[in-house]
Amino acid sequence: MSQNKQASFTLDGKTIPYAEGQTIIQAAMAAGEYIPHLCFNPEFKPHGSCKLCTVKANGRQTASCTQQPQPGMVVESDTTEINDERRALLQMLFVEGNHFCPSCEKSGNCQLQATAYELNMMSPHFDQFFPDRPVDASHPEYLLDFNRCILCSLCVRASRDVDGKNVFALSGRGIKSHLIVNAKSGRLADTDFTGYDKAAHVCPVGVILKKRVGFTVPIGSRSFDEKPISATPHPTVKGA
């Protein structure tokens, strides 16, 4: 093997070159291949929580956003078995929160919705939880609609790692996990959050929203109206 020959693995039969330190999903993205994901954003350290990016690497299931490839590794992603599991994960996310796409202002720019379309999710399948989660509208410029939080922790990571502020945190365990705002009152208005923060622009769904924007951009002209998520590079960054 020559020294400078780049290492590679195969993804659904296609050869994907990778560099030292890259994860499977990073190498796949760099090669223009799509692996469904929600809590991964190329700008942030992986979190490995949503499991949408699960693949089979040499026959073993693993999160492709945290797993580094090995030379010659055989990775399967777009298979009926894995996609069925991903669809079930999506369905659980949909029923755990309150996701009413037809009246959600993030519709067409939402990664959860776009991923559900990508994976042909036709119905929520499970019984809806219909949790009661009031919105936090205390901040003059930004609104938090907790109904749609999928606990990806991107806002937590952005606020802590980029903004150096720690405005958001995940609290509780298991089914009780939820997003909180780090203020005594629990209200966004009582933090130092601003619209210039990175955290204001990373939410893949419709939780952290600039106020009074709503439907100013018509349905039909939004990120995923034109192209499916699989053909939209780095949607989290673009959708921001």
């Binding site: 009413f100 037809p102 009246s103 202002e105 009031p134 919105v135 509208a137 609104l143 609609d145 106020k211 009074r212 924007v213 709503g214 439907f215």
Partner: peptide, 14 residues
Amino acid sequence: QGRPYWEVPVMVQR
């Protein structure tokens, strides 16, 4: 009640 006003014209169609 408790929803942001700019959502209403779309929401109300339900």
